[in-house]
């Protein structure tokens, strides 16, 4: 449901924003993001990809992948194996309602079902890149750090925890988030670079060589399990959580001590 009054004024926008926050909170707690796994399994035949597609995807993307008013086509631009695999293996697709933002979650299909679906969608005629082959051992950690800082950190943050994006035509679009890369697999990262999902630009073969892609993916692997010295990491978001702990534990603890030793025995 979306309010589309031409001159609804700022009050409606505030309410929408407040509602958006409330909805976000609800979705987060009630685990409604994954509607499909309850569907009955489909037998593993050569036809399985097509059966799954027609059952779950054709509603919005049309039987031949040409798209409908509810969903984009799957046969132009960067569409193809890499894109389909990325959307399915990160749980971004399928969604229940076309107005829902696509978010990272656990996938609705098992790996062999995803393989069949990817093969079927690829057969529809998209000419986007195939699923990339990643060899993290061939990457160079230092080069990966440099390329990551230069090309990725501005949105996904230096530590890979992601961030909110300010760009976009609709200021109340809730999907404008550079997601955390803390759980992404090497192949998913390489796929995202190839196809540029959502607002992310394409970092294709003409931008990065295979070695460079391997290096970035290797560095991200390092960020996912970094050399975390110094103790409790506080979410790797920097001074915001540090300030909170500084006040709660540091100043708060010191005030508590002062309260204890600064009060005479017998006083309140």
């Amino acid at each position: 449901m979306k309010l589309r009054c031409a001159r609804s004024g700022w009050a409606v926008k505030v309410l929408t924003a407040l509602g958006a926050i409330a909805l976000g909170g609800c979705a987060y707690t009630s685990n409604l993001t994954n509607p499909h796994p309850s569907q009955e399994p489909v037998a593993d035949t050569p036809e399985r990809g097509r059966v799954l597609y027609l059952r779950d995807c054709a509603w919005c993307h049309a039987a031949e992948g040409s798209g409908t008013g509810r969903g984009p086509d799957l046969i132009s631009d960067t569409n193809g194996a890499a894109f389909t695999d990325f959307m399915l293996s990160t749980g971004r697709m399928p969604i229940n309602d076309p107005s829902e933002p696509t978010r990272f979650s656990s996938p609705s299909y098992n790996p062999s079902e995803i393989e069949d679906l990817v093969a079927y969608v690829a057969s529809l005629g998209g000419d986007g890149p195939p699923i990339p082959v990643v060899d993290t051992q061939a990457g160079d950690l230092a080069l990966g750090l440099e390329l990551y800082q230069e090309n990725c950190a501005a949105c996904h943050s230096t530590t890979g925890v992601g961030g909110a994006l300010a760009a976009g035509p609709d200021p109340f679009d809730r999907s404008l988030i550079a997601p955390a890369l803390t759980q992404s697999t090497p192949v998913q990262i390489a796929e995202a670079m190839q196809v540029g999902p959502g607002t992310m630009p394409v970092f294709g073969r003409d931008t990065f060589s295979d070695t460079e892609v391997d290096s970035i993916v290797r560095y991200l692997g390092h960020l996912q399990r970094p050399d975390d010295r110094g103790g409790l990491p506080l979410g790797h978001v920097g001074p915001v959580t540090e300030g909170a702990i500084g006040w709660l534990v540091g100043v708060g603890g010191a005030l508590l001590i002062v309260r204890l030793i600064g009060t005479r025995v017998g006083e309140e």
Binding site: W10, A17, A20, I21, A164, A166, F172, L176
Partner: peptide, 11 residues
């Protein structure tokens, strides 16, 4: 919160 940064700023 999974909300828009513009909405949060407006609030």
């Amino acid at each position: 919160l999974g909300a828009s940064i513009f909405g949060i700023t407006l609030i």
